[in-house]
Amino acid sequence: MINPTEYLPKSYHRRVSTYWWLARRPYLKFILREASSVFVGWTVLLTLLQIWAVTRGPSANAAFHEWMRHPLMLGVNVIAFLFVLFHAVTWFSLTPKAMVIRVKGQRVPDWAISGPTYAVWVLVSLGVAWVVLRG
């Protein structure tokens, strides 16, 4: 088949650098936020490994705990924690932008939506910690 675009003038595309996201601080923030996806995947991988170790028995558990205490793993996991924290904060502060609520024709202010979201986050985190720590 004939490619129709061959007979049309080519539009002008300025080549964008692969490292465009280093040019400005908001761009960098955007790409760091997007990069949190890698650490979300990493967290699921850790969870699956721990489920495997817990169901496998004492030797697998001991190996898992020792691996988690390795300085390299601790370094990666502290970075992963900061990234998922960044994901959570950016996600909750975007909630009012994605969810516009109007009361009597007036738009509900951003803080009235993000405030309760942060409160639920704190409560859910405390709930998870309580279930894990109560022993």
């Binding site: 988690m68 959570a88 996600w91």
Partner: peptide, 24 residues
């Protein structure tokens, strides 16, 4: 978006406990 909510709500506390606070 469903996964965004779930991971934002739950991952910080999971990672803090199992990957930072317990090993340290």
């Amino acid at each position: 978006s469903a996964g965004g909510v779930v991971s934002a709500m739950l991952m910080p506390v999971h990672l803090f406990l199992f990957a930072v606070a317990f090993p340290l």
